[in-house]
Design a protein around this nucleic acid. Structure first.
Length: 584
DNA sequence: TTAGGGTTAG
């Protein structure tokens, strides 16, 4: 309070000085006037020039100018003021100015500069407070640099000058959740609760629920809500429900997703446009476009305006269900409605045209929208994929080059599409060149799909080399990897090696499609190795038994464990509630 | 006076 009063006093002094005749404070008054006129650039320039010419401004005033410059996006100006001040021996900017600068730098992904500003701050003898550390750590978290985030956190703890609070834990926990490192996230949650006695709030719990759902640990997310969050006296919000609904949709549990939706309405929690997007997307992807459309109608009845996400979600649903003309009609309605299509809308349409043998239409749309919408990697990749589908590998390669020349970075998915195209055009030598390019691209790293694409396309021996390489790189093969190799081995008559791989696959707990297993068993029987065939069947049964565990909520109403696609009523907001209460 | 959570595409 005292600090606040002092601030007020200073501000009023400067205000008064504006009306005084020229005085030694004239430069200050002029700076303040510039600052208050809202012209951050001019204020920054003035401060810089005057300081360089020997004027000395109070630290408070220059800090305010730096803060305003940061907020108006004039990062260059803010940095120049900082440099001028630090070199001219005038009082350094205060903690707020540094915090503001570090925040602006990390939001512009200039993380190295932000870290340097933190160092400069310490050099100037100002101790960063918990907020300054939080904005710095948040920058690393948002850019998926959790190791750096953790280092700064440790530095803060070691300096022993400020203590972490609920917000800072929230930033770190969310960072780990976004990286799906749930063990780290849960460990930090325990640390804050047990060791530091900080009560987590609903935002932190929501991060955890969402992280568990994204990690395909829906059951645990559910248990977490029920057994930890609610027990700690924290009620779920619309965000919690939205994450759970998305998790249920992802786990292909649409019936449960709808039940959670209805329970949310019953609790008088109003869905937001985000929750509507999630349920509409879930229904569309489950092939229930009509139900999705009913939800949209309900939104409209309630006066809720459809945004670009809702339109794009519906267009995607229509495309994936084969209603291409309806999707295009909706796209035209969307444009008239004022919700302008974005890169995702276009990527969806382009991809759909390509998949339906209308590559020329897709190319036409692609060329047409160049003038309206910056092209991104997904839009290019959709066209590249269409060209590859038509075995126009050279055209695809040319477009890929054009993309990079236009300054759009490729990602692993883009390379994977191109690799698939090379094999489709029966040009394995080209595929290996593309694989090399991927390896040289600093922004990309080969993933499971990359290896599966190449292994499925190349010869057996190269495939085995890649199989060992991927495991060395910590990429676990999935059933597609094994199936491709096992089929190659069977084709070359190497039944023993095929059995070994099959055994390894089953031992790793992978639930394989029955096709490849059937082929292995048949070949083993023909080769009079019934003992090995029996072993394969026995191991496959063991894998299947563990895979088919039942879920508690399916038992409650005696519902089948397999996902239904119909039969669950979507509650409306007015009367929508189910009788049962399985949802927390 | 600076800081944390849920949405759509290739």
């Amino acid at each position: 309070m005292r600090g606040f009063r002092r601030g007020l006093h200073r501000r009023s002094l400067y205000h008064r000085s504006l009306h005084l005749p020229p005085s030694p404070d004239a430069a200050h008054a002029q700076l303040l006037a510039l600052h208050e006129s809202g012209d951050a650039n001019a204020a920054a320039r003035f401060l810089r020039e005057k300081t360089a010419a020997g004027s000395i401004f109070p630290g408070f005033l220059s800090s305010v100018v730096i803060d305003r410059a940061c907020k108006s996006g004039d990062l260059r100006g803010a940095l120049l003021i900082l440099a001028t001040m630090l070199h001219s021996g005038t009082p350094p900017p205060n903690q707020h100015a540094f915090a503001s600068l570090i925040d602006a730098l990390s939001k512009s992904t200039r993380l190295a500069d932000a870290a340097r500003a933190l160092e400069l701050m310490r050099d100037a003898g100002i101790h960063p407070d918990v907020v300054t550390f939080t904005v710095m750590i948040r920058g690393f978290c948002k850019n998926r640099m959790m190791e750096r985030a953790w280092e700064i956190f440790q530095e803060m703890i070691k300096s022993n000058r400020c203590q972490p609070d609920c917000f800072l834990y929230g930033v770190l926990i969310d960072g780990y959740c976004k990286e799906l490192r749930m063990d780290r996230a849960l460990e930090l949650l325990r640390e804050m609760r047990v060791e530091r006695r900080i009560q987590p709030d609903v935002v932190i719990y929501n991060s955890i629920v969402d992280g568990l759902c994204r990690s395909n640990r829906f059951l645990e997310a559910w248990k977490f809500l029920d057994e930890t969050m609610v027990l700690q006296g924290c009620s779920p919000t619309v965000v919690t429900y939205t994450s759970l609904i998305r998790g249920a949709c992802k786990a292909k549990k649409m019936k449960l997703a709808v039940r959670i939706w209805n329970a949310m309405l019953e609790r008088k929690i109003q869905p937001t446009i985000v929750s509507y997007s999630v349920i509409i997307d879930g229904l569309s992807k489950a092939g229930r476009v009509y139900d999705a459309y009913r939800v949209v109608r309900e939104m409209e009845t309630l006066g809720c305006e459809l945004n670009v996400v809702i339109y794009t979600t519906l267009i995607d649903g229509l495309c994936k269900s084969g209603f291409l003309d309806d999707a295009y009609a909706l796209y035209r309605i969307m444009k008239r409605s004022g919700a302008f299509p974005n890169q995702r809308t276009y990527a969806t349409l382009i991809d759909t045209f390509c998949r339906n043998d209308r590559t020329e239409t897709a190319l036409g749309l692609f060329d047409h929208i160049r003038d309206y919408c910056p092209l991104d990697v997904a839009m290019y990749t959709a066209v590249v994929s269409g060209l590859c589908r038509e075995r126009r590998l050279d055209d695809a390669r040319a477009l890929f080059r054009e993309m990079r020349l236009a300054g759009v970075s490729a990602d692993t998915h883009a390379y994977n599409v191109l690799l698939h195209g090379a094999f489709r055009s029966e040009r394995p030598e080209e595929a290996f060149r593309i694989l090399e390019e991927l390896g040289d691209d600093p922004g990309c790293v080969a993933n499971l799909l990359t290896y599966n694409t190449v292994i499925a396309g190349c010869c057996l021996e190269s495939g085995m080399v890649l199989f060992y390489e991927m495991r060395q790189r910590g990429i676990a093969p999935d059933f597609a990897t094994y199936s491709a190799l096992i089929d190659r081995l069977l084709g070359s008559g190497e039944i023993g090696r095929a059995f070994d791989l099959c055994e390894e696959m089953l031992a790793s707990g992978l639930s394989p499609p029955s096709g490849v297993l059937g082929r292995v068993v048949a070949r083993l029987c023909w080769s009079r190795r019934g003992d090995l065939a029996a072993k394969v069947i026995e191991m496959a049964m063991a894998v299947d038994d563990t895979a088919s565990f039942s879920l508690p909520w399916d038992d409650e109403d005696g519902a089948a464990q397999d996902e239904d696609s119909q039969g669950e009523e979507l509650g409306s907001i007015k009367d929508g509630a189910t009788q049962e209460e399985p949802v927390p």
